[in-house]
């Protein structure tokens, strides 16, 4: 499974989020990888899921892109929770 962590620039917030998403995936035993990217590039990059802050996800949620919003980028429990919820509902 391919997950893209997205932020405005693709080098700060999204990298930090991707660290924690990868940790969360591992702890949840989900086979997947999270990379980080800026919003403009993410718009044309295919992925199973896109994850980021609500205001960034809003700008990506068109077509059939599946987005996951996270408020706290460093709270592993919150990230695990949203991943569990989103990834189970197919």
């Amino acid at each position: 499974m391919k997950i893209l962590a997205v932020c405005g620039n693709g080098l700060g917030t999204s990298f930090m989020l991707s660290l924690n998403v990868n940790k969360a995936l591992k702890e949840l035993g989900i086979d997947g990888e999270c990379k980080n990217m800026d919003l403009a590039s993410a718009k044309t990059e295919a992925a199973d899921y896109y994850i980021g802050s609500p205001e960034i996800m809003e700008q990506l949620s068109y077509g059939n892109k599946k987005t996951i919003s996270v408020v706290n980028m460093v709270n592993l429990n919150e990230i695990k929770e949203v991943l569990r919820k989103q990834l189970e509902v197919k």
């Binding site: 930090m16 919003l39 960034i56 706290n72 980028m73």
Partner: peptide, 13 residues
């Protein structure tokens, strides 16, 4: 950046 993308630089409360 914040004006165009929103306050995504807020990492946590």
């Amino acid at each position: 950046n914040v004006k165009s993308f929103g306050p995504y630089i807020v990492l946590m409360p």
